[in-house]
Design a protein around this nucleic acid. Structure first.
Lengths: 129, 129
DNA sequence: CTAGTTGCAAAGAGTTTGCATGGCG
DNA sequence: CGCCATGCAAACTCTTTGCAACTAG
């Protein structure tokens, strides 16, 4: 990834504009299709993998259909966990000291380093319960 | 699923014998192939979905290749979370009062009911750190 | 000009569906 | 004997790979 191209610029910009959402490759593709901007899905997959390796975005696995979602990482994301509702798919960014406690506890007592980006806590949100 | 068949019996038995493991469809299929017992993968998929709906087994998503694993649910599984190492794929069953605290806290303060079966905490295990 | 990047098409992998055959009750 | 379950093959979806054309530097 040595060259700067229009496609990469556009994809990154779109991810930044949707920091609060987890986007699938399909959603990203459709966004550009509608604007009549041609970006091959191959390019999207390749660039997203690259961004993930660089630690710029985070990849999530969707428990419903085994597809993947990607999300731009903001600094404050480092401090929180993600809750995802099994029913409606809503993602809740939870900032809570309890979770930092848990993280500390698990690394100290169980010798396991939690990855906040990969980890998604599944369950039912207030509406779907 | 009204009839009792040999295939169902064999699949369930195999899951029970491997309560401590998360099994993929491939692993289940291969197990029977080696024993020269013919069970179509379709049957395995269908029966596993059915068992999951009944709450007898739990389905996990593998972050590496987007495939699924299935595991027989034992009573004590209700009391713990699963940690999964991103590198080596090892699954650790963590029974810890801290987690029960967390569960209680999240439902009381954040109105979110955690699903212990679906939730997998990703990170690095002691060996891979 | 040179080498990295793109986009199409095709290949792969995991999963689901359609349908004729087979087996439970 | 009727209806459900099975297993094969084909369809489907998501993702990756091969390759010729394109383009940034």
């Amino acid at each position: 990834m040595k060259y700067k191209t229009k496609q990469k610029e556009l994809i990154l910009q779109f991810l930044k504009e949707n920091k609060d959402k987890c986007l699938t490759v399909k959603e990203i593709k459709t966004n550009f299709d509608l604007k009549q901007i041609i970006i091959g899905q191959t390019t999207i997959y390749r660039y997203l993998s690259n961004l993930e390796e660089q630690g710029i975005i985070s990849k999530y696995i969707n428990n419903v259909d085994n597809s993947s979602s990607y999300q731009y990482i903001t600094d404050d994301c480092h401090l929180h966990f993600h809750l995802k509702c099994i029913k409606c798919g809503k993602i809740i960014h939870l900032e809570c000291l309890k979770l930092n406690d848990l993280e500390k506890h698990i690394i100290e007592k169980h010798d396991f380093k939690i990855d906040n980006f990969k980890t998604v806590i599944y369950g039912l949100c207030s509406k779907c319960k």
